[in-house]
């Protein structure tokens, strides 16, 4: 479903050019569980951002579900993000003034779903992620694990085909981190393509396919 051909992303630091991604060719099929590992600055986050259409490559082509999405307009990209991609971040990125339920509801509002239907879907998600008790709490009143569960609920409420997680356990202790990973893996078992960026070897090794990066290049791709 994800097809990168010669994707290159260059950042400029002063007069120096940094090849965050250097002619990456990569193909990920639907329903895969992939981990992307590498030291910081190896380009793994940039790879994820381009996959999620948050960032544009300087050259190369990107095909998502058979459609070339490299040159989409900003609005079209937003629509693809909304429909196909779910993001999970290291720092959760919950809106602090909204309750757990309202945070989960956000993508539904953006899509323009009616309030009654939104309510039903949010209820369902809260129940599925064991957050019903916490529905009316704001992020500040939630534990780290709960916050990440809210974020995952939000990322999956529109049933995206791919779930992109950038260091999803980076701000959580080991036990909670494992629980969150188990939750993501459950979603994978249910059919979602799961792509996890991490520098944690143990977490990364849980994936069925493990990609290692260094200096903007893929140095290992193990099944």
């Amino acid at each position: 479903m994800i097809q990168f051909s010669a994707i290159t992303r260059i950042f400029h630091m002063g007069d120096q050019e940094i090849h965050a991604l250097d002619h990456i060719d990569l193909e990920i099929s639907s329903g895969e569980y992939v981990s992307i590992m590498g030291p910081s600055g190896s380009g793994k986050s940039t790879l994820l951002n381009i996959m999620g259409l948050l960032d544009k490559p300087d050259s190369g082509r990107y095909q998502l579900d058979g459609r070339d999405v490299t040159d989409l307009t900003e609005t079209e990209q937003a629509q693809v993000r909304r429909e196909k991609i779910g993001f999970v971040f290291q720092s959760f990125h919950l809106v602090p003034r909204l309750t757990a339920a309202e945070n989960i509801e956000l993508p539904l509002i953006l899509t323009g779903i009616s309030p009654a239907e939104r309510k039903a879907q949010v209820e369902e998600a809260l129940h599925a992620f064991d957050l019903s008790e916490r529905a009316q709490h704001r992020p500040a009143e939630l534990s780290g694990g709960q916050r990440q569960r809210v974020a995952i609920a939000r990322a999956t409420i529109l049933r995206p085909t791919a779930l992109l997680a950038d260091e999803p356990t980076g701000n959580l202790d080991h036990r909670i981190g494992s629980e969150v990973m188990a939750l993501l893996e459950d979603l994978h078992h249910a059919g979602t393509t799961l792509i996890v960026v991490t520098h944690d070897r143990e977490l990364g090794s849980r994936a069925h396919r493990r990609i290692a990066m260094r200096d903007g290049q893929i140095v290992a791709d193990e099944q």
Binding site: G52, E74, T75, H93, V95, L110
Partner: peptide, 16 residues
């Protein structure tokens, strides 16, 4: 800023 980034990540176009 972070909230705006998030809204974009979950699919809000610039016009929204």
């Amino acid at each position: 800023t972070a909230e705006i980034g998030l809204l974009k990540a979950i699919g809000a176009p610039a016009s929204d």
